[in-house]
Design a protein around this nucleic acid. Structure first.
Lengths: 339, 339
DNA sequence: ATGAAAGCGCTAACAT
DNA sequence: ATGTTAGCGCTTTCAT
């Protein structure tokens, strides 16, 4: 492996010039730069990633934490983070905690020391723990907000409002929310958005749960839902909705016929379900891209950074699990419902 | 952040001793080591990951390539690799190509320079490209074998043999294999294992496809399968099997009743399907763990390393999609079938 | 068993 | 615009 020195000698310039030619090309006269770069290519030289952090102060890597890689909600985020990071010539360390909230801190803490910045998607740890991390390394939160956090990428309320409007328009007056984990930020956010929309439209919102954000947990909900004679369900996420749907037939119920079901996240499985699941789309790819941009900004302006909340648009994707409620006449829906 | 020097001063030893206390503890007298370690803990010192690679020659990170994080086959592998790597105090860079075989090389190449070793799961690139990578950095292949590769973790044939035996025992004489991508190593391996088992048991194996390893591709298979009046299917993977099953009802067919369906990989969705899918289990977690072990061995013995093929056990997990063929009497199955 | 000293390859002041 | 000079924090001979 050729070093910066080899290139410098061969191009008859100093190491500094070679270094500059790579890191701040415009600070070098065009012809010198071209010569240096030509020599570098000829020698097959690439700046050593290992030496850079020691001399400068950047490692050239960022860390990405997600609670569970196997949860289909996260892969789109991971992919877009990686793609965007590659563009910025950053490596991405990915870590997951297997949904064990108690391991999160240790896992993240161990990454924090060896990266320039951190992305945390839906962390379950306490606000205090999050703030601890925030103090160590530039960090952008995804789907989580904490007082004092400099940057977060969050879903807007549009999709959930549309979900409630949709159910009401279909004639449902009582909506059941299958809640997610108690301590989950997303659960709180979803619940409150749902409540606000329901009360504005005069619908009744009943909560059941909590349910783990998993297929099996949703399956458990089926009996409860059937016992309630529920006609409209909004699930904490698609996994729960899908689990619910898988057991509905055992109670003589069919989603989209006897009962309306709406999921959240719009993971790839949603349109594949039988019947295809109506869901509130979260643009994971957008979120990932934005998060990396926010993070690189923070790293650049290391130090002061004016807090930013970036909101990504959500939208109700209507599919076959929401059809008119046969037992109720649709309510007249005024145009005022849609903003 | 305290440095090695701070610890050395405080513990009244030299930097070398501190360094040794961390990297080769037994080369330091027990009491000195304890003192050093105590001071280190007190100061909150951790050896800088950034400085190590420059002085030594290890970066302390490995790279993991997978074609598609969103494919449920990979998360268990990724998780176990991460867990095992954490134990060895290694960071893991994860990269995926979104199934674009043509991007694989560039993506992997860019990781290759900044890690101590590489893990490649089911890469689709050519043998030649794989060998190029192999020449750059210690690499372990997972679910792929290439002549000359020093190490690979591969599934054994047991599960597929059991699958064919199972179908034959259920009375099926004609089995259809829904093939995966043409250029895929796994596809070739699965096909040949299936062929061998079928011919040994006197069953007929017909191939259809190729199909992308995706749900939608499996959905496309449904019409084809129905047109063939097939009674027994082995799909390239669970995703294809699940996609197939989702469309079967449209042709008046029910998996496990009119038609036997077997998937491969046993991803978490398999037992969740309606009806639960019979599948050949691949122990992804074991594969990941073994792969990291193989890789750290290679890194240690940097240089000569006797080529290793590590085989992980596969097993047929029988669920509801395989029931006796109603139109055929079960064949007498000699005990010779099971080895 | 421990210490001293010499870098690893690079970047970042500080000259010029 | 370019060169000079110091290190960054650690590991590793080589002494002792």
């Amino acid at each position: 492996m050729p070093t910066i020195e080899d290139v410098a000698t061969r191009a008859a310039v100093s190491k500094s010039t070679v270094s500059r030619a790579f890191s701040r090309p415009d600070s070098v006269r065009a012809d010198t730069r071209d010569r240096v770069l030509a020599v570098a290519r000829e020698l097959g030289y690439t700046p050593s990633r290992a030496a850079r952090p020691l001399a400068g102060r950047r490692t050239g890597s960022i860390g990405l934490f997600v609670p569970d890689i196997a949860n289909p909600f996260f892969p789109p985020i991971i992919k877009s983070v990686q793609a965007q990071a590659r563009r910025a010539d950053l490596g991405v360390f990915v870590a997951d905690s297997d949904e064990h909230a108690e391991d999160e801190f240790a896992i993240i803490r161990s990454m924090a020391g060896q990266v320039d910045g951190l992305l945390m998607a839906s962390p379950r740890m306490s606000d205090k723990a999050v703030r601890d991390i925030l103090g160590i390394v530039p960090t952008v939160l995804i789907s989580r907000d904490v007082e004092g956090a400099p940057a977060a990428v969050l879903p807007d309320d549009t999709g959930l409002r549309q979900a409630v409007e949709h159910l009401v328009a279909l004639g449902h007056e009582r909506i059941i929310y299958l809640a997610g984990p108690e301590d989950s930020y997303s659960n709180a956010a979803r619940r409150s958005a749902l409540r606000a929309a329901a009360s504005r439209l005069g619908a009744d919102l009943t909560e059941m749960g909590p349910f783990r954000p998993a297929f099996e947990a949703g399956a458990r909900a089926a009996a409860l839902v059937a016992a309630q004679h529920a006609t409209a369900i909004v699930a904490y996420n698609d996994l729960v909705a899908l689990g619910l749907m898988s057991r509905l037939p055992e109670f003589g119920l069919t989603a989209g016929k006897d009962i309306a079901v709406i999921g959240i996240d719009d993971i790839w499985l949603a349109p594949m379900a039988q019947p295809p699941l109506t869901s509130v789309r979260f643009p994971g790819a957008t979120a990932g891209t934005v998060a990396v941009r926010l993070l690189t900004d923070m790293i650049e302006q290391s130090g002061k950074y004016s807090p930013k909340r970036y909101t990504v648009p959500t939208e109700l994707i209507v599919r076959a699990t929401t059809r008119p409620n046969p037992s109720t006449r649709a309510l007249p829906v005024s145009t005022a419902i849609t903003p």
